[in-house]
Each structure stands twice: as C-alpha cells, then as structure tokens.
Write a protein that binds this DNA or RNA. Sequence first.
DNA 1: GTCTGTTTGAAACATACGTTTGACCGGCAA
DNA 2: TTGCCGGTCAAACGTATGTTTCAAACAGAC
Lengths: 224, 224
Amino acid sequence: MAQSDTVDRILDAAEELFADRGFSETSLRMITSKAKVNLAAVNYHFGSKNALIHAVFARFLTPFSATLEKAFDDLEARCDGEPPTLNQTLWALTESAVRMPQRNEKGISIFMRLLGLAYTQSQGHLRKFLEQEYSQPFSRFMRLLKEATPQLSSVDRYWRIQFMLGATAFTMSSSDALRDILQNKLGVETTVQEIAARLVPFLAAGMQAEDAMLAPPVHKSSVA
Amino acid sequence: MAQSDTVDRILDAAEELFADRGFSETSLRMITSKAKVNLAAVNYHFGSKNALIHAVFARFLTPFSATLEKAFDDLEARCDGEPPTLNQTLWALTESAVRMPQRNEKGISIFMRLLGLAYTQSQGHLRKFLEQEYSQPFSRFMRLLKEATPQLSSVDRYWRIQFMLGATAFTMSSSDALRDILQNKLGVETTVQEIAARLVPFLAAGMQAEDAMLAPPVHKSSVA
DNA sequence: GTCTGTTTGAAACATACGTTTGACCGGCAA
DNA sequence: TTGCCGGTCAAACGTATGTTTCAAACAGAC
C-alpha cells in the first residue's frame, strides 16, 4: 500500500490546504510537508500542480455526479411524467451533496468551499476541466430548472440562475469564515446542512419572485 | 503632475488586473508594464504590494461610502421616523453604486468584482483593512436591514444577508461575461442597471421568504 | 544658475516557486 | 543470486516574484 498511501496523503493534504488558502496561495512544498511526503512525489504521481488540482476535484466530483444523476432519476421517476418542482429539484441537489460519504467531519464544507473557489478563482484550466468532465449533470440540472419555472421568460430565468449560483458559490466559498464570525458574534454553531437548509428557501423564493423588473421606488413612496 | 499621473496610472492598471486575475495572480511587473511605469514606482509610491491593494480599494470605496451615507440620510429623512422598507434600503444601495462617477465604462463591474474578491480570496490584511476603514456605512446598512426585516431571527437574517451579498458580488463580478453569453444566446442586450433591476426583486423575495428552515420534501419522513 | 528635495530608471537582491534529475532502496521474477 | 522496476529521496534547475539600491533626471525656490 505504499503508493496509494502516498497518493491519498497528498490528496488529503492538498484538499484541505486548497480549501483554506486557495490554489495559487498553496505551494507544493506546503502540501508535501503537510502530507509528510517528498516534494517530488507530486510531480511523480500527478505530473503537475494543475493535474493535482484536477485530481482533488475528480476525487469527490466523480462519485458526486453519479449520486446526483441517481437522485435526478429518482425524482423524475417519482414525479411520473410531471416535471419536478423547483423545491424538489433544489433539494435533490442539496441532499446529494450532504449525503455524500465523507472522508472526515469537515468533508462537506471543504467540498463546498472548493466548488466556490473553482468558480471564483479564475483558473482557466480548472474551468475547462470541469466543463468537459461534468457537463452532463450540469445540463440536466439546468433543464430541470427550466421545466420547474415555466412562468419565467428565458432572460429572467437566465439571470435568476446566475443569482442562485452566486449566492451558493459565494456563501460556500467563505462558509468557514462566515461560520466563525457567527460563532463569535452570536455564539451560534452552524453545520453545513443548516446553511443549505436556509439557502434553499431563499433561492426558491428569489427564483419565484413576482415582478422581475420592479421599478426603483419613486423617491417618495413605494410598494411596501 | 508627474507624481499623480504615475500614481493614477498604477492604480488604473492594478484595478483592472486585480479584477481580471485576482491579487496573488497579478504581479507587480504586470501592473507596472501595463501602466508603463517603472517597477520600483509601486514600492516608492505605495510602499508594498499589499498597500497598493488597499489603495485600489480606498480609491473607490471612500467616495462610495460618502455617497451611500448621503443616500441613507435622504432615505431616513424621507421616511420620517418610520424605518425604511427592505426595497427602499436595497434601492438606496443600488442607486448609490450605479450613480457613482465612473472612470470608465467598466467601472461598476470592476468595482463589484473587486468587492467579491475581497471576500473570497483569503487575504487577511485586506479584510482587516476594510473592516477598520469602512465599518460605519456597513454597520448602518446592517441596521437598516435589521429594521426592515424585524420578523427574521438574527441568525436567519445573518445568513440571508450573506446570500444577498453572494448573489450580488458574483453576478456583478462576472456581468461582462454573462452579458456576452446572453447577447450571443438570446440576442438580448443588457445594461448593469437592468441587471440591478432584476437583482433587487430577487434579493427582496429571498430575504422575505416564509420559512427559513423548510424541511426537505418528504422523501421518507421527518421534519426533525 | 544653483541648490534641494522629489521622482524616475536600470539593475540587482534575496527568496520562493514548480519542475527535473540522478542516485538509492526494496521487493519480486527469473 | 541477478536484474529489474516502481517508488522515494536530497539536491539542484531555471524562472518569477516582491523589494531594495543608487545614480540620474527633474521641478521649483532662492
């Protein structure tokens, strides 16, 4: 088990450090010393730092996208022809994420933070990698969203999906910091599951808001 | 005006490059060569790269926070004792941002993207700087939000504010790319003001969503 | 014109990075 | 045993980074 031990130790260390500090801010020397392996091991086993980043994502994204496909299959089967509702679709996604087998207690939050970073940090190679490896479940999710919000115009739906994506990616990408702040300010502990449970109703409500183009308040009174 | 010319050129170049690529991914050599100034000029005028980052933020955040304070003054004066509504508060913020005098056509979106990065990239020094320089308008905005949503618990409100922040920062930061996609896919033109007009109702609806802790749709049971 | 403090310029500095090298080790097949 | 080969290791490679240096150019006051 010498090899796979080294490979896993590198992946574990890299995953945690990337989530804590971002990709560019994490050096191979940090990773290898945290993993207690030789510096050259990364390039030997993975080829390059970018390839290591891809491997970190693939390790959780591949089983996740399988789980997600199954969740969508179940959902559509249960709905029996009718398109699933927005809430159902969002919950299918959230539950798939939460129910994933975790390597450790921080698993899900690291997972989320990495996804947020993938969107936020402008790493061209990562975006390309994710797009061509995981386009299928993504497209399917988009299709479900479209069927769940037939009342929206394409343009409205487009923008509101961006808003959802933003709220999610942003919150998840800084969820550790936010949880800490909350802990210190209000003395409240929060799990990722709870954050998700708060996020979904927020997204669903925003997605189904009545008027997409409400005018700015007329400088005197407003809709209340 | 030799000095201020150099200083401004550095700030302009840094602002754009930071927004495009993030802070760690932007080197001083990129900045100085884009600004067509000598490499040493940054350390001469600003002292360090971190101080330059602070200066970039200060240049738009200082006038913006003044504008925002005035907008809040006006709003509270108009409301005459009654707390402003959520919609009014959000519009006061949005309008202050949109009405800011822009250095160029990309002004507002760069502005937004930088704010997003400030939260996302774990630059400890930046967060500290922003917190101690601009805590006042931030606290005031928070107070207004609190008064506009008395029905929410502190914890719910805290998270929903994060969601709003995320949707806004994320959307605005990539609004150029998103606008292009929309243009090509659906043949629709969009201005930043229109995006804001779509965003505010989304945020207001999410902020005022009925149940913060809606249980996942049955599946088998259990509303904890 | 000369002096004085400020701003620029080219070059060098020390350090950190990702990557490569080549020697070395240990188990296993022949 | 011998030969091999996947894996590890310390060391070095070349490059890029932020920062510093110091001489030259500049501006404005006298």
